[in-house]
Design a protein around this nucleic acid. Structure first.
Lengths: 232, 232
DNA sequence: ATTCTCCAAATTGGATCCAATTTGACATAT
DNA sequence: ATATGTCAAATTGGATCCAATTTGGAGAAT
């Protein structure tokens, strides 16, 4: 079942300062959520008209999205939503392990109990809330644990990786019993953080991310025949 | 002694397809090399006239450079070259260790002796060539060792980190006996790669990068008073 | 029927134009 | 002398216009 969220049109024509900024975040959301499907062409006219702006800020936004790996730009041909690709998925999860264990390691000496509690409360939400919000809440949980590291660039990098990962997650999340495993991982991770047990926390986080990547990969491998992932 | 390379003006006005692409790479080079100084304002008019194009491709290029962390864009105020900052330097080197050890680990099972030899030849060049090319050659050396990992996204990420790191390197490279230490690290790294000794290779690479970061930090700490690093 | 050519429509890339915001200088008031 | 207000110049942001490239289809040739 493909995500079939309909595209909303926000009227940015009134806004003064920075339409490009808004466009970037809106289009990013639409690509991550799957409202804009992998491989789908992104025509400047269409987007411009949908947001009631000229093509100019659209073009700037598309450049940025390309730099983020969410769009593909071919000179004189146009832009399209970056296709999904199992090799990229694997790569993203390998990079997540590397970047997020670094963030957690740097965060642990700084993190307060209050901050750990904040993460625990997000985990409560995850377990009680609608699975549709899993992506965003899951991201928030992890980010709360990493933020005390005080490395803005690293955190931005991790955000970007999670954005891309979310695209894949979106296709599968409903069908999985993955949530359960993820929840127990999260609980164990919080416990290790409370004990400030670096080795344990990093080990849990690593296998947590690797696991998620494996589950996704297996699920998507089956998927691949049924429904395209966007042409390469 | 600040880099005082003069700005060359390339005439892109004839090129058909994609002036923005060219602008991005040219401006990137100028920022990395220090020809465009940290904190220096990047006025659209000036750049456009220098490259004999209109402001439009300049604006697109600036957006991308902002996404890469090389430029700063303030709405309605304009762009400037991203300032240098010791905390960022530290962060970049932490991220390099994390990303590059991952790349090397994934590369080692794939790398051929011929590829290792290619890296060794680059190291020969480093030791014999002008120190001014150190940044580029050093980057090439490392990339040669990582490339067999076959992870395009990871490699692009590493390239980006090294671009930013080069900006700091550029300020110091001449003044250091760092080259010697770096050379012996490189030789030892090649040896470990030849033996396919993962633990040894990763350990050498880690301390190699950490070392470089420390040396840079110390050097720049002294520097900070004399000559600005661009206002925050 | 298939392939090739050519031309019009669609679409992107770049330049120019106009509006809105910021900057800085000068004048004025305290 | 310093601070404040005002207005013109500079600069950015957005829209429109034009050129260049790509796309797709009709028609001709084999």
């Amino acid at each position: 079942m493909t995500p079939t969220t309909s595209l909303q049109s926000i009227d940015l024509s009134t806004r003064s300062g920075d339409q490009t900024r808004v466009l970037i975040t809106e289009l990013r959301k639409e690509i991550i959520s799957g409202a804009l499907r992998p491989g789908e062409p992104l025509r400047q006219d269409v987007i411009a008209e949908r947001y009631k702006v000229s093509r100019m800020p659209v073009r700037e936004a598309l450049r940025v999205l390309e730099a983020e790996g969410l769009a593909l730009l071919v000179p004189n041909k146009g832009a399209s939503v970056a296709p999904l690709d199992l090799l990229e998925l694997q790569e993203i999860y390998e990079m997540r392990v590397s970047a997020e264990t670094l963030a957690l390691r740097l965060s642990l000496p700084e993190i307060s109990n209050a901050q750990i509690d904040r993460a625990a409360r997000i985990q409560d939400d995850i377990e009680s809330a609608d699975l549709r919000d899993f992506g965003a809440l899951n991201k928030a949980f992890h980010r709360t644990l990493y933020e005390p590291c005080g490395r803005p660039r690293l955190l931005a990098h991790i955000d970007g990786l999670n954005d891309v990962a979310d695209r894949y997650l979106r296709f599968t999340i409903k069908a999985l019993d993955y949530a359960e495993r993820s929840n127990s991982d999260h609980r164990a991770l919080l416990e290790a953080c409370r004990k400030r047990d670096e080795v344990e926390a990093l080990s849990i986080l690593s296998s947590h991310i690797i696991d998620a990547g494996e589950v996704l990969k297996n699920y998507l491998t089956d998927f691949l025949g049924n429904e395209g992932l966007g042409e390469g």
